[in-house]
Structures are given as structure tokens and as C-alpha cells.
């Protein structure tokens, strides 16, 4: 396992399209629910323990080689918002492109052929981690970190929040991320033996509703 490869995949500059998405933060800012570092932290923590947990488990399971089709359907069932499903597939397709260029592998090519319009992002993330020689825990960490760093970066742009405060938020989420990542690997191992039914299904009502409100808006800075 290469620790350096993990840094490459986890780097916010990895060219996989994430910069155009706020992870629901723009909708929360527009609705007045995120206004400062404290509310950003609560937002990120909520995201981490809901859609973040699901994504981390899926990414970890994909890294262990669980069936990408099953995982992708499981993500669909856990993502009622059509706007979020579309964004997840778009990001998955973009990540697939970057991953295939970075770590060419027949396995990645096979997943790409299976989903010409994109598999859900965590499914691709897990497959990319696998192609990069990384393990399930690495995939879970990448997924979790990206799930909170995206909103934090977006809020810096949206609110003019002090970037040091935003980074402090990420640092304060580290313990939660460690715990969730470890649990995600355990769940992922059970997915391999028992199927995708064991995946968690935690949801955050305002992430779903906010995503739809955002998609309906004519003027916005971020795609989701």
C-alpha cells in the first residue's frame, strides 16, 4: 500500500470535477442555515454522519472488490433526491476519467464500460483506490474527507469565511472521521460476504430538500 498514492487521490486538486460542487453548502448558505464557522461545522458533521457514512462504506466496499452494479443500485436507493443522484453520477464519471488517466487498469476500464454515463462517485472512488493500490480504509478516508472539505472550501468562497476558520473546522472533524472510517471498513467487509443490504442508509432531510431547492434555482455558483 502506498501512502503517497493516497495523497494523490485525496488531494483537492485531483482533477475530478469536485471544485464545481459545494456538497449542499450553497443551498444551506442561501437558506441562512450556514452563516459562520460554527454552523459550517454542524453542517459538515451532519453530512459526515449521514450521506458521508454511506459514501464511505460504499467506497470501502468497492475498494475491496464488491460488485459495482450492486453498490451503484444501493446508492440510488439511498439517494432520493434526483438532483443528488445526477450530481453523484456526473462526479463519478469525471473521477473515472481522471483515475483512468492516472492509474490505468483493466478493472477501471471495465467499470467505465458498465456505466458510460457514470457510476455513483463513491463506487468509482473505491475502484480508483483499488487501481491505485490502496485499501478499503484509504478509500473510506478519501470519501469522508472529500465529503467535508468540499463544503468547507465552498463556504470560504460563498461567505468570505476566513480560510483558517474553515480549515479549523476540518481539523475538529478528524476524530469523527477516524471513527467513521474504521466502522466503514468493517461494514465493507460484511458487504463482501453478505451483500449490499448491510450498508447503512443514514439520511439528512435538509440535504435532500436543499439539493432540490438548489437545482430549481436559476442563479447559482455551484452545480450542487
Amino acid at each position: 500500500m502506498s501512502r503517497a498514492a493516497l495523497l494523490v487521490l485525496a488531494d483537492g486538486r485531483f482533477p475530478a470535477g469536485g471544485h464545481a460542487h459545494s456538497g449542499g453548502a450553497e443551498a444551506a448558505v442561501r437558506a441562512g442555515r450556514v452563516t459562520d464557522a460554527a454552523s459550517l461545522e454542524a453542517f459538515c458533521r451532519g453530512r459526515l454522519h449521514t450521506s458521508g457514512v454511506v459514501a464511505a462504506c460504499v467506497a470501502a466496499a468497492a475498494a475491496l472488490g464488491a460488485d459495482p452494479g450492486d453498490l451503484d443500485r444501493a446508492v440510488d436507493a439511498r439517494t432520493p433526491s434526483p438532483a443528488l443522484r445526477a450530481a453523484g453520477r456526473r462526479l463519478g464519471r469525471q473521477l473515472m476519467r481522471a483515475a483512468r488517466a492516472t492509474w490505468p487498469s483493466p478493472e477501471l476500464d471495465a467499470v467505465a464500460s458498465l456505466f458510460p454515463k457514470g457510476a455513483h462517485q463513491p463506487v468509482v472512488l473505491g475502484a480508483a483506490a483499488r487501481a491505485a493500490g490502496l485499501g478499503a480504509l484509504d478509500a473510506a478516508y478519501c470519501s469522508l474527507y472529500e465529503g467535508v472539505s468540499g463544503p468547507a472550501t465552498a463556504v470560504v468562497r460563498l461567505l468570505g469565511l476566513d480560510p483558517f476558520d474553515a480549515t479549523g473546522v476540518l481539523a475538529r472533524l478528524a476524530d469523527d472521521m477516524d471513527r467513521v472510517a474504521r466502522d466503514a471498513v468493517e461494514t465493507a467487509e460484511r458487504v463482501v460476504s453478505d451483500g449490499v443490504g448491510v450498508l447503512p442508509a443514514r439520511s439528512a432531510p435538509l440535504l435532500e430538500i436543499g439539493a432540490e431547492a438548489h437545482a430549481a434555482r436559476a442563479v447559482r455558483l455551484f452545480a450542487s
Binding site: 482533477p15 471544485h19 464545481a20 456526473r90 468562497r157 455551484f222
Partner: peptide, 21 residues
């Protein structure tokens, strides 16, 4: 139309994946 997340130069230079799509 491609959405650029407040960073139009990123979408055409540093991370071109959305435009390629």
C-alpha cells in the same frame, strides 16, 4: 453550459473534466 463553482479558470485549466464531458 458547464457550471464552474465560482472558479472559471479551474474548469478550463486545472480540472477540465466537466468540460471534456
Amino acid at each position: 453550459a458547464v457550471e464552474t463553482g465560482a472558479c472559471p479558470h479551474t474548469a478550463i485549466r486545472d480540472d477540465i473534466s466537466a468540460n471534456l464531458e
